[in-house]
Computed example of a mutant assay.
Amino acid sequence: MSHETTTPTRFSAVRQYPIDLAAVSIVAVIAYVVVTSYAEGSVLRLLATFPLALFLPGYALVSVLFPAAERTSRQPRTAGGDPAAPHRPSGYVRGIDWLERLGLSFAISLAIVPLVGIALPFTQWGLTTEPIAASLVIITVVLAQLGVVRRLRTPKPERFIGSPLESLSQLRRDESAVATASSIVLVLAVGLAVGALLVAFLAPLSTGGFTELALYGEDDDGDLVAGEIDDEIEAGDSVTATVSIDNQEGEETDYSVVIQEQVLEDDSVEERTDLEELETTLDDGTTGTDELTVTPTADEGETVRMSVLLYSDEVPDEPTNENADEDTYFWVTLE
C-alpha cells in the first residue's frame, strides 16, 4: 500500500511570504521612483518622501528584531496555582504587537536617516537626492528580506502576522485594562507624531515661494564676493556693486529695484534720496544679476547708507526699508 506524501512547493512558500514586508519593499521602490522623477516642491514627491524617510526603513528593521507576535493569552497554571512556564522553542524571540511596531518604526527611521546623511558625504555619490533615496530603498529592501527570513524561521504559533485587524481583535480580547490603556496612548502618540511630520513636510507649500536679494563686490581676482564693496570713496566719485535676485516664487515675476541714499541720525533715517531704479523679469528658479554704479550726493566727511530696496509689485510713492519686499544695504564714507 502506498501513501501520499506532501512536499513543500514554491507556491506554498510564496503563500507564506509576509504580506506586510512585501508591501514595504514595493512601496519603497515606488517611493524612490516618485522622489527621483518629480521636481523639487512637488506634492507627490513630498508624499513619497514621507514614508521612505520616516517609516519604511524603521519598520523593516523592527521586523528583523521582532519576528514574533505579542502573546496575550493566559498561561496555564500548575496544580499549586503558579503559572506554568510555557514551552518556548529554541531561538524564540518575544514579539511586539502592531501598535508598538508602528511606534518603533517611526523612532528607528528617525535614527537611520541621519546615519545615511552622515555616511554619504564620504562616498563618491555625495549628499544629493538620488543617493539618499537609493540608500534608504536598499536599506529597507535588504532589512525587509532579512525580516522575512527571521519571521519564517519563527514557529508558526508564535509568528507575527502582518494583519492589523487580527491585532485589534487581540487587543479587544485582552483583559488587562493597563495594556489596553497603554495601547490607546501609543496610538494617539503615533497619530500626533505622524500629523506633526506631515505638517512639517507640507507647510512649505502653503507659505508660497520666496525671493533672495544679495549684494556683491569684486575682489582682487575679479570674483564676486559678499562684503567687498568700497566703503570709502572721494566726494563726487561713484561706487560699484553687483545686485543679485534669486526668484523662487514658483512663477515668472516682475521686480523693481530702488537704490536709495539715506542719511541716518540716532538710527533714524533723516533724509532719503532715490538715486536709481531698475526693472527686471525673472523666470521661476532663475537668478539675475546686474552691476550698479551710483554716485552719492552727500557732502565730504559724511557717512551714508546705500539701501537696495526690492519690490515685486508697484513701487510705493515713498520707498523705505520697511515697505520693501526685500532689502539690503552697505555704508559709504565720503572723504
Results as ranks from 00 to 15, higher is better:
His3Asp: 01
Thr5Met: 02
Thr6Glu: 06
Pro8Arg: 10
Ala13Thr: 02
Arg15Ser: 11
Pro18Trp: 01
Ile19Leu: 03
Ile19Gln: 07
Ile19Glu: 00
Ala22Ser: 13
Ala23Val: 10
Ala28Pro: 08
Ala28Ser: 13
Tyr32Glu: 13
Val34Asn: 01
Val35Pro: 01
Ser37Cys: 13
Ser42His: 10
Leu44Thr: 06
Leu46Glu: 00
Pro51Ser: 06
Pro51Leu: 02
Ala53His: 07
Phe55Gly: 11
Leu56Asp: 00
Pro57Asn: 02
Val62Arg: 07
Ser63Thr: 07
Leu65Ala: 15
Thr72Gln: 13
Ser73Pro: 15
Gln75Lys: 14
Arg77Ser: 12
Arg88Tyr: 12
Arg94Pro: 10
Ile96Met: 06
Ile96Cys: 12
Trp98Leu: 15
Leu99Gly: 08
Glu100Asn: 11
Gly103Cys: 11
Ile112Leu: 04
Val116Met: 07
Gly117Asp: 06
Phe122Ile: 14
Trp125Phe: 04
Ser135Trp: 11
Ile138Asn: 04
Arg151Ser: 10
Arg151His: 05
Arg153His: 00
Pro155Asp: 07
Phe160Asp: 02
Glu166Ala: 15
Leu168Cys: 15
Glu175Cys: 10
Ala179Asn: 05
Thr180Met: 12
Ala181Met: 03
Ser183Thr: 10
Leu186Cys: 15
Leu186Gly: 11
Leu188Trp: 09
Val199Phe: 10
Ala200Gly: 15
Ser206Tyr: 07
Gly208Ile: 06
Gly208Cys: 07
Leu215Trp: 05
Asp223Lys: 15
Asp223Gln: 14
Asp231Phe: 00
Asp231Gln: 10
Glu232Gly: 11
Gly236Asn: 05
Asp237Pro: 09
Thr242Gln: 09
Ser244Ala: 15
Glu249Phe: 06
Gly250Lys: 03
Glu251Arg: 14
Glu251Thr: 14
Glu252Gly: 15
Asp254Asn: 08
Ser256Asp: 09
Ile259Asn: 01
Glu265Cys: 13
Ser268Val: 09
Glu277Val: 15
Glu277Thr: 13
Leu278Cys: 06
Glu279Met: 06
Leu282Gln: 04
Leu282Ser: 08
Gly288Glu: 03
Pro296Gln: 09
Thr297Phe: 00
Gly301Gln: 02
Glu302Ala: 15
Glu302Arg: 10
Ser307Cys: 01
Asp313Gln: 14
Glu318Met: 05
Glu318Val: 14
Thr320Val: 09
Asn323Cys: 14
Val332Thr: 03
Val332Asn: 05
Leu334Gly: 00
Leu334Phe: 05
Glu335Cys: 01
